[in-house]
Design a protein around this nucleic acid. Structure first.
Lengths: 211, 211
DNA sequence: TAGATTGTTAATCGATTAACAATC
DNA sequence: TAGATTGTTAATCGATTAACAATC
């Protein structure tokens, strides 16, 4: 579709990530074409929404056939910025932080976890997969010297803001916040929140209100 | 605020979880009152949105003073359905699944992980914290006998739908989906998605489009 | 009392859906 | 060609914000 380079609504960006996943799934099955209608059914949307969303992506479908899966995948990857490697660090070597550091799915999408940091002396030096947990005071140096652009916060909520501040001062360009706390950042450093406890609360509300 | 028992918009429910976290933080500091304006500033919203959202919660503020933190916390907990214990199972004993099973933050909010399941014989029987990984074919029995109401999917995306189907057939009432795949459920079983890879893609898009 | 903050209504803004001409 | 599907415009729907009377 069009040759757009304007702002894409956040709600649409979220769905673009789903389209990407879905298309990759279909490519595994060697599907060559997919229509907006098919994507809509698979993802519980309307075909109108799908077409509207894909109009933000720099690529075109074909009348009567739909979208070529391979081209759509590439275009989505480009639009989402996944056509390159992003270096990231994880701060917080609790259960969650350690799981992330070992999670192979990230690498497959271009996100390379380059370091794991913690403030607990008992943890520092321990191995997590191929990485060693490092003292979080080394974070600024690591970020600067390692061309790290993304920071992942996996610490208890009380510490989240100070970790964010240190990451930003050290030059990260974006933050994934897994802590159960809102972190404040300057305009230039976007934050995406992903909180499992919040999701569970959403879920308990949904279950409760359906009975 | 009002005595409402109608549908609360999903966007508002998400924010209610943030208000809860924020209020709990303030209570630790023994703050007794909080205004819509304060909450708005802390969470990057407008005070209007905060008041509008809290109008869905069964409780009232006080002119000139704001909201009593203790009452607000209780009301939010009730509204979100967190005033009770929810039994949950995790399917998928990979890095993420194992981390969740050990995550103490869940219990603190009333979510009790009662079992971890996997299909890999090499994993079955291994310990994860105080739980042993069990054969996923035991899932239906465990769900029925354990009064399990929530299922957490932490398997690779190819397996997500069949895990969901089995959970639903066994009687779970809601699903938290951490797999990178959309799962289809009947109307009566709500699904909340929480996908870290998707969040990272959102983040890379945001960083990219800000430069 | 005067002033601050709620709760609610109305206005605005943005996102989703419907509709359909263009196209292959 | 006839029919199916895109891309886009217009209509609808819902969510956010503004405004302000009510209140303590």
């Amino acid at each position: 579709m069009a040759i757009v380079r304007t702002h894409i609504p956040r709600s649409a960006v979220k769905r673009l990530t789903s389209y990407l996943t879905q298309v990759q799934r279909m490519m595994e099955k060697e599907t060559e074409w997919v229509s907006s209608q098919e994507l809509a059914v698979k993802l519980g949307l309307t075909s109108s929404t799908v077409r509207q969303d894909l109009s933000h992506v720099d690529f075109s479908g074909t009348s009567k056939k739909g979208y070529r899966t391979q081209l759509l995948e590439q275009a989505l990857i480009r639009t989402l910025g996944a056509d390159r490697t992003w270096n990231a660090v994880v701060v917080g070597a609790g259960n969650l932080g350690r799981a992330l550091a070992r999670h192979s799915e990230f690498m497959r999408h271009g996100f390379r976890i380059c370091g794991v940091f913690d403030s607990d002396p008992a943890k520092i030096g321990k191995k997590v997969g191929s990485l060693s947990i490092r003292d979080w005071r080394e974070l600024p140096k690591a970020i600067r010297e390692g061309q790290i652009e993304l920071g992942i916060i996996a610490v208890p909520s009380q510490a989240a803001q100070s970790v964010a501040d240190l990451m930003i001062a050290s030059g990260v360009r974006g933050i994934l916040n897994l802590a159960l706390a809102h972190v404040i950042t300057p305009e230039r450093v976007p934050v995406v929140d992903s909180r499992i406890v919040s999701s569970l609360l959403e879920l308990s509300h949904a279950v409760k209100s359906r009975s």
